[in-house]
Amino acid sequence: MDETAPVVMELHNVSKTFGEVQALRDVNFHVRQGEIVGLLGDNGSGKSTMVKMMMGYHQPDPGGEVRFDDEPVRGWSVAKARSLGIETVYQERALADLQSVWRNMFMGREPVNRFGLLDTRRMRREAAALMKGHMGFTSGAVHPDNVVQTMSGGEKQGVAITRALHFHARLVLLDEPTMGLSLSETQKTLDFVRSIKEAGHSAVLIDHNINHVYPVVDRLVVLDRGSIAGEFSPSEITLDELTDRLRTVARTGQMEE
């Protein structure tokens, strides 16, 4: 990975407290342009909180700072993050079940014509094309007007992933995108992540399966109980060593014994 590539997104001394729970503790983290960063860590280690922090859904506790394009962000919000080219596949999927595929695809980012009216034709047309292209739905039963509720788990996930990818975001955050996907769907999702890099864009990939993360990423960051426990590149460590170290982290909270 090119260490001189500009840093796109940075968390600086970020902590996050929810009532009694400290979900993040002095986290320092960055993503460079054209870089895929894998984020590993146990359940509850704060991965999703980090994603939502970068996305402007959570604000850091006082003292912490979110930086985008080397500038501290001000009035950071999801709307602002998206307008600057960050898209997310949330762990929760963030779909509206009773709405059609096309309404979900464009939720919060609906195109309008020059009169300020929704361009519903364009949304339906693009949703149809995306469903065929990216998601590979060929069955005639899947129509952009279908409500998400009627779709299978994998199909819903497909909607969330396609939505994050088709805006050509500069930074894509994927929080457990392969959860519940079939083998071929998982492969396709990982190919998507590679294509982000090929387009010169950046991504953060969270996945519990190291076999998914290891071959795709440029750098691995391990999170443990809200703190960064270590980071390294796949070129300096074999998959077996990585597995060993993650076990150590889970036991001791440290990278090495």
Partner: peptide
Amino acid sequence: FVVGDNADSARMMGVR
């Protein structure tokens, strides 16, 4: 529609 359907999803997608 999306706010009434799932306010959390709407918020995560940047709807105020």
